Structures are given as structure tokens and as C-alpha cells.
Simulated assay, not measured.
Amino acid sequence: MKQLPSKTRIWDLPTRLFHWALVVCVVGALVTVKLGGNWMQWHLNFGIATLALLVFRVIWGLVGPRYARFSSFLPSIRAAWGYLCQASTAGTRQAGHNPLGAWSVYALLGVLLLQASTGLFASDDIMYQGPLSVLVSNDLVAQLTSVHKLGELVIFSLLGLHLVAIALYTIKGHGLVGPMIHGDANSQHLTTGTLPAQDDWRVRVGALVLAALLACVAWWLANAQFGVILS
């Protein structure tokens, strides 16, 4: 009888690199905005890098390996409630994001997309001016700046819930951090018949090309002088 592998690849390398790069950029943006002053240029750079990463994740959620695709963890209130009711008794878990995790991912991606996008138009009239703020009216800049400031509180709340969920799963013996580092989950902890995610050179080269293109756009956005162009 053929022995089943003890480990199953769940998270492909591009998804894992995206996750940790996003952590660095979000933390960097939150820290630099609190430092203020000359650090606001770094806040802008972290924000643009965050936006590029989020666009990568959206595209990767459409064309990436099975567990990275949005179609594998569509948000469902019924599924989330059923999962919550059975979570304490289930001995195995599904690969990828569970129904509750799906809501967390969509919430974080949505809020961060809004935050990074509004940051391009925000201005404090002192040390910071988003690169696209010169393209819209002062009234709209003020409105988007207010949304951007409010979004910071929402992000702190979602990150707090995210960390609590990670801690609870770790206590229950279903660590989430390890698989997001090395990509593999214990096959015994997964439902029967779980298939591994594709994570070969073709996946990685495709992700590298996409990331390089988005990095070029991010660099251009960070260095473009829209005010000079308009004048």
C-alpha cells in the first residue's frame, strides 16, 4: 500500500512572500506615520508598496494555485456559522482558509486597499501630500484624508482580531504561522483527500514577472511629479 506523505503543500512560495512582505509594509506604514516629520516620505513609500502587494494578491487570487484563489474561500455567513459551531469538535481541518478565515482575509484586503488608495490622495498640508492629491479638488482631498485617518483605527482593530485568532488556533494545536513560513501542513490534520497546491518553477516565475511589473509601476508612482506635469 502506498504511504501518504506526512506533509502537504498548502501555501505556494509567492503567497507566503506576499504575506510577510505585507506585514513589513503595513507595520512600516503604521510606525512611520506615528513618527511623523521626515518619516512621512517613508510612510508614503510603504503605502505605495502595500498597494502594489495588494494588487498582486488580487491578481494572484484569480490565477494562482488552488488555495490562494478566491474561489477556494468565498465568504459565506452560513459556512462561517457552521464552522464556528463545529470548530470545538472537529479533529481535522480543511486546507487553506477556513470559512471564518475567509471573512478575515476579505476584510483585511478590502480595508488595506481602501487605506492605500486614499493615501495617494491624502494631505496634511504640512509634511505629507499624496502623489495624486494634485489631480482632485481640495474638498475631495479633505474627504479622502478623513477616510484615511479613520481607516487606521479599523486596521488596528482587524490586526488585533487576526492576532487573537492566530493565538487561539496555536493553543488548539493548529498552528497557522508555521505553514505560512514553510508552506506545508501536517497531512494528518487535514481532511481526507486534500490535494497539494502547485508550487513549481512555473508558478514562481509567473509570480516573479507579475511582481516585477507591479514594482515598476510602484516606483513610477512614488517618483512621478504630477504637479509638474499639470503645470
Rank of each mutant, 00 (worst) to 15 (best):
L168F: 12
V177E: 01
I166A: 10
H174V: 08
Q198M: 06
A211D: 07
A185P: 00
A218C: 11
G175Y: 08
R204N: 13
D200V: 03
G183A: 08
Y169E: 15
A215M: 13
S157V: 14
G160F: 06
G206P: 10
W219R: 04
L159M: 15
G175T: 03
V228E: 11
G173E: 04
L195A: 15
Q198V: 15
K172Q: 14
H174K: 04
L221K: 04
N186W: 02
L190A: 11
T170L: 14
G178V: 14
L168H: 08
T192P: 01
R204A: 02
R204M: 12
A215C: 11
H162T: 09
G206S: 13
N223T: 13
A211L: 13
W201E: 14
A167F: 03
G183K: 09
G175P: 08
L230E: 14
G183C: 11
L158W: 03
H182A: 08
L158Q: 10
T194F: 06
G227D: 14
R204I: 03
S187K: 09
G193P: 00
G160Y: 10
L210M: 15
A211R: 02
R202F: 03
A224S: 15
L230H: 03
L210H: 01
L161S: 08
L208I: 03
V177Q: 10
V228H: 07
Q225Y: 04
L210N: 03
V228K: 12
Q225W: 08
R204S: 05
A222K: 11
C216R: 00
L214Y: 08
S187R: 15
V217F: 02
N223K: 09
A207M: 10
N223S: 09
P196F: 13
A215F: 10
S157Y: 13
H182L: 06
V217Q: 01
G183H: 11
L168I: 12
L208A: 14
L159Y: 05
F226P: 10
L221W: 05
I166D: 04
I181G: 06
L208Y: 03
T194Q: 10
D200A: 06
G175I: 08
L208K: 01
T170C: 12
A218T: 01
A165Q: 02
I229E: 06
L213S: 10
Y169H: 11
G206C: 05
D200T: 00
H189L: 14
A165E: 12
L208N: 06
D200F: 04
R204L: 07
G193I: 05
W219F: 12
A185V: 05
N223V: 03
A185I: 09
T191G: 02
L214Q: 00
T191C: 12
V203S: 07
V217P: 00
A215G: 07
A211V: 08
G160V: 04
I171S: 00
N186Q: 15
M180K: 11
I166W: 11
A207C: 12
C216P: 01
T194K: 03
L176W: 01
P196S: 14
V205R: 12
D184C: 13
Q188E: 14
S157K: 05
N223G: 04
A222L: 13
Q188C: 00
D184M: 13
L195M: 13
I229R: 11
A197V: 09
R204C: 07
H174I: 01
W201Q: 13
D199H: 05
N223A: 04
V209R: 05
T192Q: 10
L158T: 07
G206L: 01
L176S: 04
V164K: 01
